[in-house]
Amino acid sequence: KMTIRVKGKELARRIAKEMKDRNLKVEIHEHGDEVILEIE
């Protein structure tokens, strides 16, 4: 399990899509400006 902190929703969406393309499970937690992606 891996956690990534990202500034900006646009970048977070791009990373999430990339991870889904690799068949990984992604959970997205938004905290205002910061987005936390949990990847399994």
Rank of each mutant, 00 (worst) to 15 (best):
E10H: 09
A12W: 02
N23D: 07
E30S: 08
D21A: 09
A12G: 09
E40S: 14
L11F: 02
G8V: 08
K1R: 13
E40T: 15
A16L: 09
I4N: 02
K17G: 06
G8C: 15
L11D: 08
K1F: 08
I39W: 07
G32N: 08
E34V: 14
M2T: 14
A16D: 02
I4K: 03
K1M: 07
T3R: 13
R22F: 06
E38V: 15
K25D: 06
I4Q: 03
D21L: 06
N23P: 00
A12T: 00
G8I: 08
R13M: 14
K20G: 09
H29I: 14
E18L: 10
K25E: 07
N23M: 07
A16C: 12
V26W: 01
H31C: 15
N23A: 06
A16F: 04
K17Y: 01
K9Q: 09
N23W: 06
E10G: 07
K9P: 11
E38L: 14
M2Q: 13
E18H: 11
E10A: 08
D33C: 05
I4M: 04
I28A: 05
T3S: 07
R5E: 07
A16I: 13
K1Q: 10
I4R: 01
E34F: 15
E18W: 12
K20L: 13
K7N: 08
I4T: 02
G8N: 15
K17R: 09
D33R: 05
L11S: 05
K20S: 13
H31K: 11
V35D: 01
L11K: 09
I28M: 12
A16K: 02
D21R: 09
V6W: 00
A16P: 00
R5V: 15
K9F: 05
K7E: 06
I39Q: 00
I28N: 01
V6Y: 01
R22A: 10
E38S: 10
K9R: 12
I15Q: 00
L11Q: 09
R5M: 11
K1I: 08
I39H: 01
K7Q: 10
I39K: 00
G8L: 11
I39M: 03
L24D: 02
K25M: 09
R13I: 13
K17S: 09
I36E: 03
R22Q: 09
D21W: 02
N23I: 03
A16M: 09
H31M: 13
E30T: 10
I28R: 03
E34T: 12
E40Q: 12
L37A: 01
V6M: 04
K25S: 10
K9S: 07
E10M: 05
V35N: 02
K9E: 09
K1L: 04
I4W: 01
R14K: 13
M2W: 07
I4H: 02
L11A: 10
K17V: 07
